[in-house]
C-alpha cells in the first residue's frame, strides 16, 4: 500500500468522524439530559400534574409541586405573539428584499438584518426592561411593562433575521423563468409574488417560519428579562383569551433562573432537567417538521 492511498484513507476517515460526531454530540446531550432527570421522571414525577397543573413550587419545604403548565403556556404565548409579528414582517421583508428593492437598498437592508441577528440576547433583554417596558406602559396603560407583549415583540425582532434570510433564500431559489412566464401572462409583480412565488417557494417559506418558531421557543436570556418572570396562567379557556399584558414565565427562563440554586441531584434539579427534555422534544419536533417540509414530504 502506498502513501498516497494511505493519506486518502486517513482524510476520508477524518471526514467520516467529523460527520458522525455531530450525531454523537446530539445523542450524547440528549442522553445526558435524560440521565440527569431520569430517576425523578420515572419514580416521583406525577406526569399528569406536570402537564396540567400551574403550580410550580419546587422549593416549597413541605409540599413541593411540579406543575409546568403555566411555563408551557408562557412559552407558547410569547412564541405566538412573536410569530404573529415576525411572520408577516419577516416574510414581507423577504419578499421586498428578493423581489422589489434595488440592489443598493438590498445590500443595506441585508447588513441591517445581519446586525439585528448579531445583537446578543442579553442586550435584547436590556431593551425589553428599559425601552420596551416604558413603551408598553405608555401605549397600553398596563401596570407593568415587562410581560407577554413586551417579550413577544423582542422575540419577534430576534427571530426576524432567520425568517428573512431563509425566506429570501427560498424566494431566490425560484427560477426566474417562472416570474417571466407569469409576467408575460399579464400578472403584476404583486400577483407574481402571491400566485407564483408563494406556491413555488411554499416549503422553504414554511421552513423559515418554523425555524423562527424554534428560535423563539429556545430563547432564554431575553425572555427571562422581558417577561416579568412570574408564574401566571396567561391563557384563559372560558372564554378563550390570551392575556398579552400579563407577566409570564417560560420554560427556558425557569431553567436558567433556578438551576444555579437547585442542589445537584435534588428533585428540583431533576425536575429542571425534565423541563429541558420537554424543550428538547419541542424543538426537535419543530426542526423535524421543518426538515420534512423542506423535503416536500408533505405535498398536498
Amino acid at each position: 500500500m502506498n502513501w498516497r492511498l494511505l493519506g486518502e484513507r486517513a482524510i476520508e476517515t477524518l471526514i467520516r468522524v467529523c460527520g458522525v460526531s455531530a450525531i454523537v454530540f446530539v445523542f450524547g446531550i440528549f442522553v445526558f439530559v435524560l440521565k440527569e432527570g431520569w430517576e425523578f421522571l420515572t419514580h416521583r414525577l406525577d406526569l399528569v400534574q406536570f402537564f396540567t397543573s400551574i403550580e410550580w413550587r419546587p422549593t416549597s419545604p413541605n409540599d413541593p409541586t411540579y406543575g409546568a403548565l403555566a411555563l408551557l403556556a408562557g412559552t407558547a404565548a410569547v412564541t405566538a405573539v412573536a410569530m404573529a409579528i415576525a411572520v408577516p414582517f419577516g416574510l414581507g421583508t423577504a419578499v421586498f428584499v428578493s423581489e422589489f428593492c434595488r440592489p443598493r437598498t438590498k445590500e443595506a437592508l441585508k447588513i441591517v438584518i445581519e446586525l439585528l441577528a448579531a445583537i446578543p440576547s442579553v442586550v435584547w433583554g436590556f431593551i425589553g426592561i428599559t425601552l420596551m417596558n416604558v413603551t408598553v406602559i405608555a401605549v397600553t396603560g398596563a401596570p407593568v411593562g415587562v410581560n407577554v407583549l413586551n417579550s413577544g415583540v423582542i422575540l419577534a425582532l430576534m427571530s426576524m433575521p432567520i425568517i428573512v434570510s431563509i425566506g429570501e433564500d427560498a424566494l431566490k431559489a425560484v427560477p426566474d423563468h417562472f416570474r417571466e412566464a407569469a409576467e408575460s401572462l399579464g400578472a403584476t409583480r404583486w400577483q407574481v409574488v402571491y400566485k407564483v412565488l408563494f406556491p413555488a417557494a411554499k416549503n422553504g417559506l414554511l421552513a423559515a417560519v418554523l425555524l423562527g418558531v424554534g428560535r423563539a421557543v429556545g430563547e432564554t436570556m431575553a425572555v427571562l428579562m422581558a417577561t416579568g418572570h412570574s408564574i401566571r396562567m396567561v391563557f384563559d379557556s372560558e372564554p378563550p383569551v390570551l392575556h398579552v399584558l400579563s407577566p409570564a414565565r417560560t420554560l427556558t427562563a425557569t431553567i436558567a433562573a433556578e438551576l444555579g440554586e437547585a442542589p445537584k441531584g435534588s428533585d428540583h434539579y431533576q425536575a429542571l432537567f425534565v423541563i429541558g427534555l420537554l424543550l428538547f422534544a419541542i424543538t426537535f419536533a419543530i426542526n423535524l417538521a421543518a426538515d420534512l417540509i423542506v423535503r416536500g414530504i408533505r405535498k398536498e
Partner: peptide
C-alpha cells in the same frame, strides 16, 4: 399578446391553475 417560450415554462402550480391563470389575473 401572448408568448410561448423556447423552454416550456409552465408555472409551478396545477395544470388547471396554469390554464385558469389569466382568467384569475385579469
Amino acid at each position: 399578446v401572448g408568448m410561448v417560450f423556447q423552454r416550456p415554462n409552465p408555472l409551478p402550480i396545477s395544470i388547471y391553475e396554469n390554464v385558469a391563470f389569466q382568467l384569475k389575473v385579469h
